[in-house]
Amino acid sequence: MNDKIGDICMNSVQISNVSMHFNTNKQKMNSLKEYCIGLIKRQIDYSKFIALNDISFNIKKGSVVGIVGLNGSGKSTLLKLIAGVLKPTKGKIIVTGVIAPLIELGAGFDMELTARENIYLNGAVLGFSKKMIQSKFEDIVDFSEVREFIDVPMKNYSSGMVARIAFAIATIVNPDILIVDEILSVGDFQFQKKCEDRISEMMKNNTTVIIVSHSIEQIERLCERVVWIEKGILKMNDNTDIVCEAYKNS
């Protein structure tokens, strides 16, 4: 029993026997009419697509873990499972601590509203309190460099400006777990530098970091451990140099 409690304290993320299946019906069936016709013809077949198959591993508190794999190997699915957006078909995921998912930024932006209103709205979507957004509001505006346009509807913004605001809001927390998908190709090189600085700053405070990247060089530079997923199956989970070597040679 004591062991178990110790385990939970040590691990930020525990993934045990997780599988994720998607239904890929030939014609996506989402109307009553089609369903009834299908019932009559007895043609409701659910062909399954297995995105992740029986994956188990733990992520230690304070470690920096990379996830590698080819396109379509299930990396993003795994991140979404950890972030709680998806629920696994089988298995269990236990996450301890506050997550800052830098997966899909700017969820809930409404282009009709001004940037000021959107900052509050998006902050609320991420589960921040009003007080917290208010106290960090100036930071967000400074960081995203949009002060002059703060009361302009977002539909008049350039995509780079939108992305900057989204990044600034998502990173105002001091998370226990930081999930980064494809170290953000946001804005110009100056702003990218700023983003990387902010991420490495967040990494300092004993934060657990999960990084997905196609740049093996970046993974080697940042991570202690690497998880390699291929076609939904956990292929390797070991120290960075061992996995990266094998991955490069595959």
């Binding site: 009709e112 709205l121 609320a124 009003k130």
Partner: peptide, 20 residues
Amino acid sequence: NKYLYLLFNLISRDFKIKYR
């Protein structure tokens, strides 16, 4: 409680968009 503020925000967004 955590998402109460979001609820409030979404309603006020609906309101603004409807009447602006």
